[in-house]
Amino acid sequence: METQEEAELCFPQLLNISCKKNTRPQSESMLIYVLIFVISLLTVILNLLVIVCISHFRKLHTPTNLLLLSLAVSDFLVGLFVMPFQILLIEPCWLLGDLVCVLFYFFAFVITGASVVNMVQISVDRYVAICDPLHYSTKITQKRVRICVLLCWIYYVFYSFIILTENLKRPGRYNSCYGECVINVIGAVDIVMSFILPVSTIVILYLRVFVVAVSQARAMRSHITAVKLQSSVTVTVKKSELKAARTLGVVVAVFLMCYCPYYCVSFSGSDIMVSSSTNIFLVFLAYSNSCLNPVIYAFFYPWFRKSVKLIVTFKILQPQSCDTNISEKM
């Protein structure tokens, strides 16, 4: 008959080296699972809509939308792969073995990192479009964007491999008992590469865009008595630029709100258990950015709403639907 001590172990047959179960109230567990399921499902559906829209309609095959497509793919994988597997990490015991544990973290690093870098690339794209519009078409081409997207993913594959090298060489070396899923990375390096540099880049680009938008708005007001045709053209340009600046502002604010709590705790050196409620909240707050990205980047564009209507009404199944004229105006 199983003793009470054995019942509290993840692997009763490994009496001396097995981890102990860390049970939580059933109501708390159910709340966590429901939230994970809802966020994961929304992330998959919203990003899948973005992927289908941009991939199907030829009018949407622009450099900016290629970046949106790459971002949607990475965020889609976060919802499809990273979030569901995170449930196993918050369970009392990890049952899939040490190698699967390290591989999960490896792919999670690649996917989430690519999502952040894609957001940086979109900020660069908007910066050039607003601050140097005359040379945008020559600087930002589809070929260059494809290369940048490819390099983005390759970079984070190598980065994840390097930062997890010791863990990949000997899976489970940092586990204190059998049934844990623990890795060790150089925290300072990861914080700089995954948070400080991307955030700094985005903030600097946004501030530059904001300064340009404000200066042009002032110029517009100072020349209010100019020729009507000139004024009307100026107003159109300035409204577009100000709207792009506001959109970038929302992007920066949401990104910081999602990622700052997690990295601030990591930077402070606080020791939080992987399965603790605090860590679960911080991790999924960061992952929720992948759910909000399609809302910020795509729902703000009229072409997305029009494309979704064609998708949900199955009109994309009609012949030549890929040539439908989808407006690109913001």
Score class of each variant (00 low, 15 high):
V265N: 14
V265C: 13
S266R: 13
S266P: 01
F267Y: 13
F267G: 10
S268P: 08
S268D: 00
S268F: 04
G269I: 06
S270L: 05
S270I: 09
S270K: 00
D271Y: 11
D271V: 14
D271M: 14
M273L: 11
M273I: 10
V274W: 00
V274Y: 08
S275H: 02
S275W: 05
S276V: 02
S277V: 12
S277Y: 09
T278Q: 10
N279H: 15
N279V: 04
I280H: 15
I280L: 15
F281Y: 11
L282G: 06
L282A: 07
F284N: 15
L285D: 09
L285G: 02
A286N: 07
A286S: 15
Y287D: 11
S288N: 06
S288F: 06
N289K: 05
N289L: 14
S290K: 06
S290E: 09
S290D: 10
S290T: 10
C291F: 07
C291W: 03
L292K: 09
L292M: 13
N293I: 02
N293V: 06
V295Q: 01
I296R: 05
I296E: 04
I296Q: 03
Y297P: 04
A298P: 03
A298F: 00
F299I: 05
F299M: 14
F299E: 02
F300P: 03
F300M: 10
F300S: 15
Y301T: 15
W303C: 15
W303Q: 12
F304H: 13
K306F: 00
K306R: 12
